[in-house]
Amino acid sequence: MFKKLNITCKQAVAICDKSQYKEATFFEKIQLNIHFLCCKICTKYSKQNVFLTKLCRNKSNDDKKKQISLCMTPSEKEFLKKEIEKRYVKE
């Protein structure tokens, strides 16, 4: 039992990455947090990982906001409309 709680830094990092996507199991999270108690490097890694994830999510929200104003131009729509009509009649 205690052996299972003892994990290497590599395993810790793998769990840490998974937990960024909410895919670490409850037991893995326990393992991770126990590892944090004795390893400052992984603690640091984890904090930075969270920061990185937030940064990327922020970026994607930002992109989405920017794109709200982007659409196809009216002429492109018109062209596509005619194309669809043509093909629809054929069917």
């Binding site: 794109q67 709200i68 982007l70 659409c71 196809m72 729509k77 596509l80 409309k81 669809i84 009509e85 629809y88």
Partner: peptide
């Protein structure tokens, strides 16, 4: 299909 562009093109594009 003739109304597809007006109704859905913006949504699908985004």
């Amino acid at each position: 299909p003739n109304k597809w562009i007006d109704k859905y093109s913006d949504y699908l594009f985004k």
